[in-house]
Amino acid sequence: MNKVTTLKRSQQQNAHIGCQVNREPVQVSVAPGKTLLEMLREDLQLTGTKHGCELGECGACAVLVDGEPILSCLYLALEAEGCSIDTVEGMALDGRLHPLQEAFADLGGAQCGYCTPAILLTCKALLDKQPDPDRDQIREALSGNLCRCTGYQQIFESVEEAILRLDHSEQGTDLKSVPGSGG
């Protein structure tokens, strides 16, 4: 048990973790009680990730960990060690917006814009796995993201438009070239 106690003591202090954030390697020193949400916003100044309850009840803090949408408010920063994390700041590539971003901006998918980053990432994960989802599948994938502004309809339409643009655009973002995006 001595060994256990020693190890533990070292971990009540800040721990250094290494992970990839938006395809860049990052080293952060975090306390065990810090969530990934706090690490992203407060240590890395990636304030594009929002929060609306910090209890897993609204979905505003969703980011992608190894391509999967998760809630950063309920994810210990320590457990992101070795993971690849995608936030909204990393969606545009080489100054070009992702087709989802384009469509949301054009078609009213974002009103106040507060739930938008989490919704965009959730949709990106969906399209990476399943390039041609129908309305019900989009609805289901977004059922963990509350939006108070839009009534969701223009969000669905934005996703559907992005699918078309992904299909038809030669210049559009090649998702398969993005590390950790699955595909």
């Binding site: 048990m1 256990v4 106690t5 533990k8 009540q12 009680g33 706090e38 209890l55 320590l78």
Partner: peptide, 26 residues
Amino acid sequence: MMRLPRFHYYRPRDIREAALVLAGEE
């Protein structure tokens, strides 16, 4: 923002080690 209370975090190598910590810690 709602924040977690302070706690010790232990990352065991396997279930046996996890069980040892559980048994040994209050």
